[in-house]
């Protein structure tokens, strides 16, 4: 089961930690903000749940949330 990674864009400052932790899913756009590699919502497959949780925990702005967690 995949879960959506939700970004609070009002809090995000494009520090880029999440993109570093989830290179399979995210990159940084030219301003540094996390950008989905595929269009649509940011989906995290099961096997990346760990790094995704870490990204949520380590975000300097607490701008991330894994859906239904």
């Amino acid at each position: 089961m995949t879960r959506a990674l939700i970004v609070d864009w009002t809090a995000c400052e494009g520090r880029g930690l999440c993109a570093g932790l989830l290179p399979e899913v995210l990159t940084q756009d030219k301003w540094g903000y996390p950008q989905n590699l595929t269009p649509g919502p940011i989906l995290v497959p099961d096997e990346l749940r760990g790094p995704a949780r870490q990204a949520v925990r380590m975000c300097p702005r607490l701008a991330l949330r894994l859906e239904s967690e």
């Binding site: 880029g16 380590m58 300097p60």
Partner: peptide, 21 residues
């Protein structure tokens, strides 16, 4: 070093944050 939001001492932010922690 990590407050500025820039890479610090050549390490990327992720490394800085992990080492800090």
């Amino acid at each position: 070093g990590t407050r500025s939001g820039r890479p610090f001492a050549g390490m990327n932010r992720l490394v800085v944050a992990s080492v800090h922690r």
